[in-house]
């Protein structure tokens, strides 16, 4: 039972990051491969303002969110958007976001140094008992947050016209612009929220393991895996994917050792992609001649 509960909790962190992939994908059909660096950016931004004692800790967390959010919107405008102009087969954005990840990682390392820094903002100590398993409150917070944020996103996208606009932009940005809607602004908005979430995850994650430039790299692969398992087009996907991935990798590493944990998770991605390329909850797009 213990690995299952821990896996679900761990899956929450991945789900939060996976949600940022899904958000950018359903609006702009792009993924930000630099998401790991936005995790670090959020964490370090919060540390940078941790001495501002006039700012309540909620405000410091918000700084982490906003810093990643602003950089995210700019990244979309200048690094992603220019490389999506050649139609559906255009995958240059994939390379440019990978390159962005190099640049950000290198810059953060040069500025902050490679070793982990302690982050006390948003730290909650103690643990609670979940079905007989002790789970740290900090980790539980991440998992709960992932669920809450996913639900908010789902409600907003279904109940407001924002969801309609997002889907329109993803299906045909050019025609959307003829409806008086700026696909560029919609994309920047999606990136702002998505990278803000990554920054938020970074702040909360850093409270447990400390902030370091490379803290996002291992999360990148796991969370992209979670997003793909659940389906890049579905806001419910990260919750399902996070739970499956988290539980499977925890159980595998519990039974066979740490290296098998990650391997099992990644093999799950391959299995899902083979069986259902659009993800477990994704809808298949019909190709028409």
């Amino acid at each position: 039972m213990e690995p299952v509960i821990l896996g679900l909790v761990l899956g929450g962190l991945y789900a939060l990051l996976a949600q940022s992939f899904v958000l950018t994908f359903i609006t702009t059909k792009t993924l930000n491969f630099a998401v790991g660096e936005f995790v670090a950016l959020g964490a370090f931004a919060t540390i940078a303002v941790s001495s501002w004692s006039w700012l309540p800790s909620f405000g410091r967390v918000a700084v982490g969110f906003l810093a990643a959010s602003v950089v995210g919107a700019l990244a979309y405008r200048f690094i992603v958007l220019p490389f999506t102009t050649q139609g559906e087969h255009d995958t240059r954005w994939l390379l440019s976001t990978v390159a962005l990840s190099f640049v950000m990682l290198n810059l953060i390392t040069n500025v902050e140094g490679p070793s982990p820094q302690r982050s006390d903002t948003a730290r909650i100590s103690g643990s609670v008992d979940v079905l007989g398993v002790g789970v740290s409150k900090q980790q539980l917070l991440l998992a709960v947050l992932a669920v809450v944020i996913s639900l908010i996103l789902i409600v907003v996208s279904q109940r407001t016209s924002i969801g309609l606009v997002m889907r329109a932009v993803s299906q045909d940005p050019e025609t959307t612009s003829l409806m008086g809607i700026s696909p560029r602004l919609v994309g920047m908005g999606a990136y702002a929220v998505a990278m803000g979430l990554a920054g938020l995850a970074g702040v909360l994650y850093a409270a447990t393991v400390g902030a370091s430039p490379v803290m996002g790299a291992p999360l990148l692969v796991a969370s992209i895996a979670v997003a793909v398992i659940g389906g890049l087009g579905s806001l419910w996907g990260p919750l399902l994917g996070g739970a499956l991935y988290g539980v499977l990798s925890e159980v595998a590493s519990f039974q066979y050792g740490a290296i098998w944990g990650e391997t099992a998770g990644l093999l799950l991605v391959i299995a899902v992609l083979v069986w259902k390329p659009e993800g477990l909850l994704g809808r298949r797009m019909e190709v028409k001649l």
């Binding site: 309609l164 606009v165 889907r167 959307t176 409806m179 809607i181």
Partner: peptide, 16 residues
């Protein structure tokens, strides 16, 4: 917009 309904398509037109 292929995946949207007729009504949603027309709603989007109204946004302009």
């Amino acid at each position: 917009f292929p995946q949207l309904t007729v009504g949603q398509n027309i709603e989007l037109g109204r946004r302009a």
